[in-house]
């Protein structure tokens, strides 16, 4: 006891404010996302001046896939669950949105439908997938997505292997202004705003006690029950949240492209989302946005030069894992954290 008192006295001599490292890291992510938004706005301005269509639409696609990557990061980076089937929800959102838009060209109806379907399917599939852990969880999520992809592929009324074409242009009524989904700059800016909102929702939730227990789950699942939390319910909640984020992102896809195809549900989509998060930085959220842009641009640029763009992406992925195991954010974010801490240390 004597010893303890001595340390205590030393410790209280100058009470040091304890830094909440996780909160600090999240604020650093906010800064990086703000920078991302500034860069995207400049990009949009240049696009408008140049009267560009191609790059603005490519940028929009990058943002949509960044939304999918966000959902992967919630699971992989914050809950410690590797999903190899997140395309299930992305594709689900895309198909639901396409089907609704072909019936009623209402943006909000499409979004509401994508949300409800993701909640229901996410909950049911989550009950199945969360019965197992680790590698088995990865395999079950993979399997569920494969089943869904096959089912869509073989369903005539969903366009089978051709997918659904002829999704109409939709007006997106935002109250103050209405954005048309076929306006390259307008829809780019709308998508940017939408993905930033998704980011903000994820970042908010992950910085609450709920989000912190998800991190605890990733760090040491065995200790979590003795803190008074049901690990099953937590994992299920994270899974459903990720399903919703992926589905809402996917719902924008047919608005951009005017069609959906079964490939959206294939393993390449799920796998690319995981690669995106790893390149961007696992467990940072901001990394999903940067990674999404990098991967989409690479796919397009390299894809126009060579048919073997998958080889290049594979090599890039391996190089990242070996040389930057924490991804781009793993290098950049600590610098921002130090800046935010400023003179306090």
């Amino acid at each position: 006891m004597v010893d303890i008192n001595v340390v205590e006295a030393k410790g209280t001599a100058r009470p040091k404010r304890v830094i909440d490292r996780l909160g600090l890291a999240m604020r650093a992510s906010h800064v990086l996302v703000a920078l991302f938004v500034v860069a995207a706005l400049i990009f949009a301005a240049v696009g408008v001046i140049q009267d560009d269509r191609f790059f603005l639409r490519l940028g929009t696609e990058a943002l949509i896939f960044a939304g999918l990557a966000l959902s992967v990061d919630i699971l992989l980076g914050y809950t410690g669950l590797l999903s190899l089937g997140q395309a299930l929800y992305f594709g689900l959102g895309a198909y639901v949105s396409a089907v609704v838009l072909k019936e009623v060209p209402s943006f909000w109806a499409a979004m509401a439908a994508a949300l409800v379907v993701a909640l229901v399917i996410g909950f049911l599939a989550g009950l199945i997938a969360n019965r197992v852990r680790g590698v088995y969880f990865a395999l079950v999520t993979f399997g569920l997505a494969q089943v869904a992809a096959r089912a869509v592929y073989n369903t005539r009324s969903l366009g089978a292997s051709d997918g659904l074409i002829g999704v109409p242009v939709v007006p997106i009524d935002l109250g103050v202004i209405t954005v048309m989904s076929n306006s390259p700059a307008g829809f780019f800016l709308f998508t940017l705003g939408f993905i930033v909102v998704l980011y903000a929702v994820c970042a908010y939730l992950l910085d609450t006690p709920f989000g912190r227990v998800l991190l605890a789950l990733r760090a040491n699942e065995r200790r979590v029950p003795s803190l008074g939390y049901s690990t099953r319910n937590l994992r299920l909640s994270a899974y459903v949240l990720a399903a919703v984020i992926a589905s809402l992102s996917g719902a924008l896809y047919p608005m951009l492209r005017g069609f959906v195809s079964p490939e959206l549900l294939f393993f390449t989509t799920s796998g690319n989302a995981v690669i995106t998060v790893v390149i961007g930085g696992v467990g940072t959220l901001a990394g999903a946005l940067y990674g999404g842009v990098i991967l989409t641009v690479l796919k397009s640029v390299i894809g126009s030069l060579t048919e073997h763009h998958l080889i290049v992406i594979g090599l890039l992925f391996m190089a990242t894992v070996i040389f930057l195991p924490k991804g781009i954010m793993g290098v950049v974010r600590p610098l921002i954290e130090r800046m935010l801490r400023g003179g306090k240390r």
Binding site: I4, V7, G11, T12, V18
Partner: peptide
């Protein structure tokens, strides 16, 4: 708790 368990200097 960090005071009581003499962990205050290590809290971060």
């Amino acid at each position: 708790l960090v005071e009581r368990f003499a962990l205050a200097p290590k809290a971060g």
